[in-house]
Amino acid sequence: MDWCSWLSKTSLEHSLVHEYALTFAHNELVQDDIVYFNHEFLQSMGINIAKHRQEILKLAKKEKKSRSSRNHILGLIVAIKQAKKLLPERLNMWTCRQGSISNFAVAPLRNYSTRWKAAMLKRNTKLATAKQETPRVVHNEGMLKRLKGMQCFKT
Results as ranks from 00 to 15, higher is better:
89 E>A: 07
117 K>F: 04
138 V>N: 03
120 M>W: 08
130 A>C: 06
111 N>S: 09
88 P>L: 01
113 S>H: 12
85 K>V: 06
77 I>T: 12
123 R>P: 01
77 I>W: 00
129 T>W: 03
128 A>V: 03
79 A>I: 01
109 L>R: 14
75 G>M: 02
94 W>E: 12
101 I>N: 13
135 P>F: 03
117 K>D: 10
133 E>C: 03
89 E>V: 09
92 N>P: 00
104 F>P: 00
115 R>G: 00
89 E>P: 01
139 H>G: 10
117 K>L: 05
89 E>N: 08
131 K>V: 06
137 V>E: 08
137 V>R: 08
77 I>F: 02
108 P>M: 02
109 L>W: 06
78 V>D: 12
105 A>Y: 11
113 S>R: 07
125 T>V: 03
94 W>K: 08
82 Q>S: 12
97 R>F: 04
134 T>N: 12
135 P>H: 05
111 N>W: 02
83 A>W: 04
125 T>R: 10
114 T>F: 08
92 N>Y: 02
132 Q>S: 09
85 K>G: 00
140 N>E: 08
87 L>Y: 13
136 R>E: 09
105 A>R: 14
83 A>R: 04
89 E>Q: 09
84 K>W: 03
94 W>Q: 11
121 L>Q: 15
91 L>G: 05
123 R>M: 02
86 L>P: 00
104 F>L: 10
92 N>Q: 14
92 N>W: 02
100 S>E: 15
93 M>E: 15
124 N>V: 01
138 V>H: 07
136 R>S: 06
107 A>F: 03
79 A>F: 04
83 A>K: 07
88 P>M: 02
79 A>D: 10
99 G>C: 02
123 R>T: 13
90 R>I: 09
138 V>Y: 11
96 C>I: 07
86 L>S: 13
78 V>N: 08
109 L>D: 15
116 W>E: 08
